[in-house]
Amino acid sequence: MDVLPESGQERHRDGTTSTGLIYQYFVDKQDIFAALLSESQLEMADFVNSLPREQGLSALLESMISEFARHWARVGRLTTTWRDIEGMAGSDRESMRELHASVAIYNSALIRALTESAAAEGSRLIDDPALIHLVLSGLKGLSDTIVINIAKEVTPEYFVSFSARALARSITE
């Protein structure tokens, strides 16, 4: 991730950036955190938008799980502190408005991909406002299991495949 503007003069020769420079672009750690999460959400939205839909819902979810786990390992596990940070930073901050907007973009891309993939196999998603939260919670839990390697009795490939099929069944009529 590169949340700082590009400029060769702003970075040290070894590629690092000074703390003082960072705070020219961000108010505090909460702003940095929000920028990292926002960038991650937009990357995931682009990834989801690029996935093929014609193989159906289970195939789509299976394709998503590994990438979601990669993002979860990088910044997602830190999102558990989002509520605390949002409370400290306040939703009226520009960084929090941008983060909320990036979450909405990702959620929209995800629902569209799920809907189109379900239609490709002749099924429909359950019409329920909790659906997006179930899918996101499922992806987060699966990702955490993969990242910390809890399911040692099965191969990661089997775990991903089984989980994608189970999650697909849980969200279709």
Results as ranks from 00 to 15, higher is better:
M1A: 14
L4M: 10
L4H: 08
S7D: 14
G8P: 02
Q9E: 10
E10D: 13
E10V: 02
R13L: 13
R13T: 11
R13E: 07
T16G: 03
T16A: 07
T16E: 04
S18W: 05
T19S: 06
T19P: 02
G20L: 07
L21N: 06
I22K: 11
I22G: 01
Y23S: 03
Y23C: 04
Y23P: 05
Y25M: 03
Y25F: 06
F26K: 02
V27P: 00
V27L: 10
D28L: 09
Q30G: 12
I32A: 07
I32F: 09
A34S: 11
A35T: 10
A35P: 13
L36T: 09
L37W: 01
L37A: 14
L37Y: 02
L42G: 01
E43V: 01
E43R: 13
A45L: 15
D46L: 12
V48A: 10
E54Q: 15
Q55H: 15
G56E: 01
L57H: 01
S58R: 02
S63Y: 03
S63E: 09
M64Y: 01
S66L: 15
S66H: 09
S66Q: 14
E67G: 04
E67Y: 15
R70D: 10
R70Y: 09
H71S: 15
H71L: 14
H71D: 10
A73C: 10
A73L: 12
G76C: 03
T79W: 08
T80S: 13
T80A: 13
W82N: 07
D84I: 12
E86M: 14
G87F: 13
G87M: 14
M88G: 06
M88R: 15
A89T: 02
A89W: 04
G90C: 10
S91T: 14
D92W: 12
D92F: 11
R93F: 11
E94S: 15
S95R: 00
S95K: 00
S95Q: 07
H100Q: 13
H100D: 07
A104F: 05
I105V: 15
N107S: 12
A109I: 03
A109H: 05
I111T: 13
R112W: 06
L114P: 04
T115K: 07
A118V: 07
A118K: 00
A119L: 05
A119S: 11
A119W: 00
A120Q: 06
A120G: 06
G122H: 08
G122L: 06
S123T: 10
R124A: 12
R124C: 04
I126Y: 02
D128G: 05
P129I: 09
H133D: 04
L136W: 02
L139M: 13
K140C: 02
S143A: 08
D144A: 09
D144L: 06
T145E: 02
I150G: 00
K152D: 08
E153T: 07
V154A: 09
E157R: 07
E157W: 00
F159P: 01
V160F: 00
S161Q: 12
A164C: 11
R165L: 06
A168E: 01
S170F: 04
E173Q: 10
E173W: 05
